[in-house]
Amino acid sequence: MDIKDIIKPENLVYQKTPLMTDKTLSYCPGCGHGTAHRIVMEVIEEMGIQSETIGVAPVGCSVLAYDFMNVDMVGASHGRAPAVATGIKRCWPEKFVYTYQGDGDLAAIGTAETIHAANRGENITIIFINNGIYGMTGGQMAPTTLEGMKTSTSPYGRDLKSMGNPLKMTELLAQLPGTCYVSRQSVHSPRNVRRAKKAIRAAFESQKANKGLSLVEIVSNCNSGWKMEPVASNEWMVEHMFPFYPLGDLKVDGKLVNNQ
C-alpha cells in the first residue's frame, strides 16, 4: 500500500491538539515540558472546557507557557502561582483554574503559597514539573535535587548535611485534608504519557466536582541542566529519580493510597 493512500484525513489517528498554538516551543530538544503542556491541553480539549479555563504560568522555563497553551492565561511572579490561581478562582468559582509550576517555583520560593492553597482546599489544579533542578537560570540546585547530584551550585554533588534533603512536596501535600487527588507521573515513554494524561484528567474532573485541590507531579528531565543527551537523561531519570520519586497515585478521592 502506498504511503499516499494512508496519509489521508479519514485515516488520521493522532495530531497535535489545536489547543496548542503553532508557535515553536522554547524548550530544549527532548525536554518533558513540551509533552506535559500538550497533554494538559488535550485534557482541556477532551473535556470541552477551553472557554471556561484560565491557566497560570510560573517563572521558570515554562514562563512562556501562555505562548503555547491556547487558553486565557496569566503570568505569575516566581512561586506565587497558587496565590494568583486562588485570586482567580475566588472571583470565578465556576471556571477551571490551573497552575503549571516547576520544582524551584513550587517547592522552594512558593512553598508557602502551595501548602496554603492546598490546605484551604482551593478548588484548583496544579501541574508540577519536577526536574530536580532550576532549568531556566542555568541548572542550579533545587530543593528536589537528589543526594549527590551535581548542579552548578552543588558542583561536587548535593551534600545533605550542608544543603539539606531533597523535598517530597507531593507526599507532603497528599497529607493535607484540602487535597483531593494527588498523583505522580512522568512523560518519558508513550505508556507514561498516557497514564499522566489520565491523571491530569482525573485532576480536572476532581476540580469539576468541587472536591478541593488536585495536583499532578510530573517527574521530568532537564537534559540541559543535567548535561545529558535527551534519551540518556530519560534513562538517568528512570534509574535515579523514580526510586526516590516513585510514580503512581498518592491520593484518590480524598483518600491516601496505601501501597505507596
Partner: peptide, 13 residues
C-alpha cells in the same frame, strides 16, 4: 505521543 514538540502526525488504515 512522546514527541515533546508535538511535530508528528499519525495515520492508520
Amino acid at each position: 505521543v512522546v514527541c515533546p514538540d508535538g511535530v508528528i502526525t499519525v495515520y492508520k488504515v
